[in-house]
Simulated assay, not measured.
Amino acid sequence: MAELELEALHPKELEIYSSFKHEPRKMSYLLGRLSAKKAIYELTDFNELNTIFIDTAVFEFPVVKCLAIQNIQLSISHCNTIGLSIAFPESHPMGIDLEEVNTKNVDVLKDQMTLKEVQLVENLFLEEAKGYTLIWTAKEALSKIFKTGMMMDFKLLELDKVVKKGPIWESTFKHCEQYKAISYFSGTYVCSLVLPKYSTFNISKYFKIFKSLN
């Protein structure tokens, strides 16, 4: 592992990283912390990255601890060798999730879908794997806003509508009408960003990030 990457870790993070015995676990931890700190830098311009300790809360969601940074929260996702994070003000909740599309996962994902979501996939997607993975990432990203992760019934996060708008897919939720999901496919990956329904963002920058995933 490059020394420059490890230099970005807080001493407590370096201790945690070093405690892992298996390389895949080390890699996922490092990817999450490095992408999270880059996201914090993009939001705040604060570049003393090794003074930021990204702790893990009781339900596994990340907590930013740094005297120089206040009221900043994170959502982190990693898949294979890709780490992806978004930093945002506490007053503007967001969530992100990245998954690889894999036909082997179709039956498992379908089992977590409601009848309405199965119908959405049948009506909108030529490939089941793409449809179910998109819906899964949208629900996973929303669960991160609630700070529960997979410890809640994902059927409670049911999607109500999925609409294709150019290169992106925009979804809304049946029981969480205040949020929307923006999803994008890049090669074999799909990423979903969940944010308040009437919020907007720099979508060109979003595309630039995800086009480089493969």
Rank of each mutant, 00 (worst) to 15 (best):
L4P: 00
E5C: 10
L9Y: 08
H10T: 04
H10M: 04
H10P: 04
P11T: 07
E13M: 10
E15W: 04
E15V: 07
Y17T: 07
F20Y: 15
K21N: 11
K21F: 10
H22V: 13
E23Y: 13
P24Y: 03
R25D: 15
S28C: 01
L31A: 09
L31C: 06
G32M: 06
R33H: 12
A36L: 06
K37M: 03
E42F: 13
E42H: 14
E42D: 15
D45A: 13
F46D: 04
E48V: 00
L49P: 00
D55N: 14
D55L: 04
D55G: 02
T56M: 12
V58M: 10
F59H: 11
E60Y: 09
E60K: 15
F61S: 14
V63L: 11
V63F: 03
V64C: 10
I72L: 13
L74V: 02
C79N: 13
T81G: 10
T81Q: 12
T81A: 08
I82E: 08
I82W: 05
I86Q: 06
I86S: 03
A87M: 05
F88H: 12
F88Q: 01
E90V: 03
H92V: 13
G95C: 03
I96M: 01
D97A: 07
D97Q: 09
L98V: 07
E99A: 15
T103Y: 09
T103P: 03
D107P: 01
L109F: 13
Q112Y: 12
Q112P: 00
M113G: 01
M113P: 01
K116R: 15
K116S: 14
K116P: 00
E117F: 10
V121R: 06
E122T: 07
E122H: 08
L126V: 11
E127F: 06
E127D: 12
K130F: 12
K130H: 14
L134V: 08
I135T: 05
T137N: 12
T137W: 03
A138N: 12
E140N: 11
L142P: 09
K144G: 06
K144R: 05
K144N: 03
I145W: 08
F146Y: 15
F146N: 08
K147R: 15
T148N: 08
G149E: 01
D153S: 10
F154T: 10
K155H: 04
L157K: 03
L157M: 11
L159K: 00
D160H: 11
D160R: 08
K161W: 05
V162T: 10
V162A: 14
V163P: 00
K165V: 05
K165Y: 00
I168D: 08
I168A: 02
E170R: 09
S171V: 06
S171Y: 06
T172E: 11
F173D: 03
K174T: 14
H175Q: 12
H175G: 02
C176K: 13
E177N: 09
E177Y: 01
E177R: 13
Q178P: 00
Y179W: 15
A181D: 03
I182V: 15
I182Y: 06
S183W: 02
F185L: 04
T188M: 07
S192L: 08
L193T: 10
P196T: 02
K197N: 13
F201M: 06
S204N: 12
F210V: 04
K211H: 14
S212T: 11
S212C: 01
L213Y: 09
